[in-house]
Design a protein around this nucleic acid. Structure first.
Lengths: 243, 243
DNA sequence: GCGGGACCTCAGAGCCGGTTCAGAGGTTGC
DNA sequence: GCAACCTCTGAACCGGCTCTGAGGTCCCGC
């Protein structure tokens, strides 16, 4: 117990490969770490040229690609990548004000994007979604369903049920619960949750985590045997009710 | 379930093959991606010469062909293609001001065309229609009928009914509903819908999506249990009323 | 029993996303 | 050339969401 969830793997059982392309070293480092934590094999590149070269050698399943690179436009890089590996998935990183025009049509092709500043949990979930839809998965569970005890979450439909009864969650509540459900029986510290759920530029206090845990409890544990437990001095755990 | 709809396949079960011919790289890339997302095998060519060569090797079931190519006229390419593969379907891309008489002959031959700028959803639907009419299908559902709960859409006849009662939709409303009906129970982001329903050169904001959702609701959900649901921060879903 | 730290909860302010309306162009059909 | 319709923009409105601050409660060590 207490290990990370079964890693998403390629059909042949080897770990998923992700290439991170960003010219800002700090951000690339954080993103790389978060993806590696998922059990995936990760490499990074700082320029479009390096990205294409690296991809040729590394053969990634997915690419996390900053759309604002010093040497070339994002769509052009996408084209180069696809020319060699038609089925690679791409998640674009964009600034909020860069949006729309430059990435027109991208999501229609099955690719996706997140706007800066993003939360790492969101980023990971998006990459995971891309891989899943591309058929790059051996996960037992059907499609996008997360199950812990009688608690279920459909990530595609944004639906959560406990004991079959639907539960309405706000976006932040949903994200927080998603993190907990991805690591059941494992204590997650408030800092970890803050890093995963809130965007990296969030200046607030860990206090919000407590607040949102209390919201979640009201909606999920209300009147039932609790699944969310506090571990003093350590953080929070989600467990099935039995045992 | 909950991933993309069952792919249209050849009678022998292998994926449909589509060749995209356009000299504008960005557009070709986006179109290619959208078709690939349908689960089809896609290649692209930038010139008439390359197209004919590629077709000889690739043996596509359908060709998406820009009528304005640098080296040769689209109709000439059509002749060359047909000479080698009489049964290939062709979808032409034309500028809005292209003279009518050139197009007149096209649809008579069973082929089709869309005018630039087009929406990706429209393009995909047209290719799908060509393939279906050419008998290139193993889909269970009769003809062009989409069904979600008591909501039905006949893509060929442009007819929509809910509970048997006909509903009148404008072209944009129709397209938007088509996208939702193709992915029932799945949250589609405003950007995704924008990419699919609106043409690739649309510079506007995601605000229009909200507007058209409200139009659709008035026509489809009016006075009945709603099928269109908003998921804050994520997008919109279409679901059957039960459960 | 007492004090302090960690955690929980409430109430409220500001903000953001979503909805709707009104109206200006543009297009189509008569 | 007019009327009807469609499409999109801008603005106002509303509600819920998110976070801050403050006080309360629980737990532990002394």
């Amino acid at each position: 117990m207490n290990q990370r969830p079964a890693a998403l793997t390629r059909p042949d059982g080897t770990p998923v490969r992700v290439l991170v392309v960003d010219d800002e070293p700090d951000l690339a480092e954080v993103v790389t770490g978060a993806l590696r934590y998922e059990g995936w094999e990760v490499r990074s590149a700082a320029t479009a040229g390096a990205a294409v070269r690296e991809a040729r050698d590394f053969r990634p399943d997915a690419v996390v690609l900053d759309i604002m690179l010093p040497d070339r436009d994002g769509l052009a890089v996408l084209r180069d990548l696809r020319a060699e590996q038609p089925h690679v998935c791409v998640l674009f990183l964009t600034a909020r004000d860069t949006v729309e025009d430059r990435i027109a049509g991208i999501t229609a092709g099955g690719d996706d994007y997140v706007t800066k500043p993003f939360s790492l949990g969101e980023l990971v979930a998006r990459v995971r979604g891309l891989l899943r839809r591309a058929g790059m998965t051996r996960e037992r569970t059907a499609a996008s369903l997360l199950v812990v005890g009688d608690l279920e979450m459909d990530e595609d439909a944004y639906e959560v049920t406990r004991g079959g009864a639907p539960i309405d969650l706000s976006p932040t509540e949903f994200q927080l619960l998603r993190c907990l459900m991805r690591h059941p029986r494992r204590v997650l510290s408030k800092t970890q949750l803050l890093d995963l759920v809130w965007s990296y530029d969030f200046g607030g206090q860990a206090h919000v985590v407590e607040l949102y845990i209390s919201y979640l409890r009201k909606k999920i544990d209300a009147g039932r045997s609790p699944m969310i437990h506090t571990v003093r001095g350590a953080g929070y755990v989600l467990k099935p009710v039995d045992r």
